[in-house]
Structure formats: structure tokens, C-alpha cells
């Protein structure tokens, strides 16, 4: 598996760290929505949207669309872009 960083190009997997499912952080105080955000997962077998960080490169946080069954990478964009 290799990831293509939008800043640095195609790089070795060793440079990246998985940072969890790409979910939207809820607003406000504790509510069941926070439990869902922190704990519950779609856990898809197939296409998945995930955060990764290019820690050994440009340090950018990325949103990676990846297939969890084939390990194919479909899209990499900068998080928050």
C-alpha cells in the first residue's frame, strides 16, 4: 500500500500514520452523539473514508478514500481543505 500525498506525491506507507475514521466532530456538551462519534463505527468492508497523517513528510492531515478489502487507494485530499 502506497499513499499519494497531495503535497509530496506518492510515498511509502512507512511515512504515514492512520488517524481513525473521517467523521465530523460533534458540537456542544456530552450527548449520545458524542458516544457515536468516539466509539461506534460503520467499520465498512469496502470503501472507507479515513484520516491519515503524513508524519514523516509534510505533516499534513489527509482524508484517504481506501478500500479495506483490496487496499486500493481511491483518493487522497488534504483534511480541512
Amino acid at each position: 500500500m502506497r499513499l499519494t500525498c497531495p503535497h509530496c506525491g506518492e510515498r511509502d506507507l512507512r511515512e504515514f500514520t492512520y488517524g481513525g475514521a473521517a467523521l465530523t466532530r460533534p458540537e456542544g456538551d456530552w450527548s449520545p452523539i458524542w458516544d457515536e462519534y468516539v466509539h461506534l463505527r460503520e467499520n465498512p468492508a469496502g470503501r472507507s473514508r479515513e484520516f491519515w497523517q503524513h508524519g514523516a513528510g509534510c505533516s499534513a492531515w489527509l482524508v484517504v478514500e481506501r478500500d479495506t478489502v483490496t487496499h486500493d487507494i481511491h483518493a487522497v485530499t488534504e483534511a480541512g481543505a
Binding site: L40, R41, A45
Partner: peptide, 18 residues
């Protein structure tokens, strides 16, 4: 490892990542 998919058949999401 497939618990998430099978539970989703009953409309559930689990606190699990595979």
C-alpha cells in the same frame, strides 16, 4: 472481525474497528 457487517444487518453499529 465481521461483527460490524453482521450487526449492521440488524441496524446496529458496534464500537469495533476491524
Amino acid at each position: 472481525g465481521r461483527s460490524g457487517q453482521v450487526a449492521s444487518l440488524a441496524g446496529l453499529r458496534l464500537p469495533i474497528e476491524s
